[in-house]
Simulated assay, not measured.
Amino acid sequence: MRCLPCGEAGLLVELDDLEQVLALHAALQEVSPPGVVDLVPAARTLLLQLDPALTDPGAVAEVVRSTTLQPGAAPEADSVEIAVVYDGADLAEVAEHTGMGPREVVRAHTGQEWRVAFCGFSPGFGYLVAQDDRLHVPRRSTPRTRVPAGAVGLAGEFGGIYPRESPGGWQLIGRTDATLWDVERDPPALLVPGTRVRFVEVEA
């Protein structure tokens, strides 16, 4: 890993892969290093936001380097169920990519627990990971200029839900009425890093 100062009150930790990011995130949540006020995971990095009155990047970097990583470790987190209508425009294409039928794709999507690895792209957008790699599919060769809010998609090793209408290149397999981002809610995002997610199929 590599530890780099980030701004006036941050430490950016670069890691080899997402598994190491998740392991370090879980370990630091357990340790709670003094002066670390927030942890922001991404695909290959973990940003530690610091209180400069209590610590400095050098001291926190020493803690990070001495932390033992346990692959697969995950802190206790909230669990949510998300109702999905599986009628996405790319469901048949996903079935072709995976070698499964459309109904098998739905069963694979609903038959396992997903976890929010990190957030980004748009407020409320969580990048979800799960164990079944049969659902790893490429992004669309041509992104859509408009993807509706609530669209449920797959891209690479991730699953996700579009919180609002936006352009996007993910393979769409369904849709949900769940509100992913609400400024009146605390926290505003339904899906925050660590959240466990179960998808439940419902009729249109």
Rank of each mutant, 00 (worst) to 15 (best):
R144Q: 08
S79L: 12
P71E: 03
V147N: 06
A77N: 13
E93K: 10
R44T: 15
M100C: 15
C119F: 09
E62I: 00
R144S: 09
G72M: 09
R65H: 05
V84C: 13
R103C: 10
A73I: 06
A73H: 03
Q70R: 12
A77G: 14
Q131I: 08
V60E: 04
L154C: 06
P41M: 13
G72H: 08
A92V: 07
V64E: 05
A77E: 13
L154Q: 00
D38K: 15
A89T: 14
V85A: 11
L48V: 02
V63G: 05
L135T: 00
L46E: 03
A61G: 00
Y86W: 13
Y127C: 04
D38C: 14
R144I: 06
V60N: 02
Q49D: 12
A77W: 11
Q112D: 05
V129E: 03
P52L: 12
L154S: 05
A130H: 03
R144L: 09
C119Q: 08
E96V: 12
V106H: 07
T55S: 07
V63H: 01
L46K: 02
R146I: 10
A151L: 09
A73Q: 00
T110S: 11
H136L: 02
L46R: 04
G88R: 05
R146P: 09
Q70T: 10
V147W: 04
D78C: 11
V152H: 01
W114R: 00
F118W: 10
W114L: 02
V137I: 07
T98R: 05
F118Q: 09
I82G: 14
G150P: 11
A73W: 00
E62T: 01
V106Y: 07
A42E: 12
L154E: 04
D56K: 08
L48S: 04
A43I: 14
F125R: 03
L39I: 15
V37P: 05
S79P: 04
T68V: 08
T145K: 09
V129H: 01
V85S: 11
R134S: 12
P57V: 01
A155F: 06
T45Q: 10
G111E: 06
V129K: 01
T142R: 04
D56V: 05
Y86F: 15
E81M: 10
D51E: 12
G126Q: 07
A53W: 15
I82Y: 14
A53Q: 15
D87Y: 10
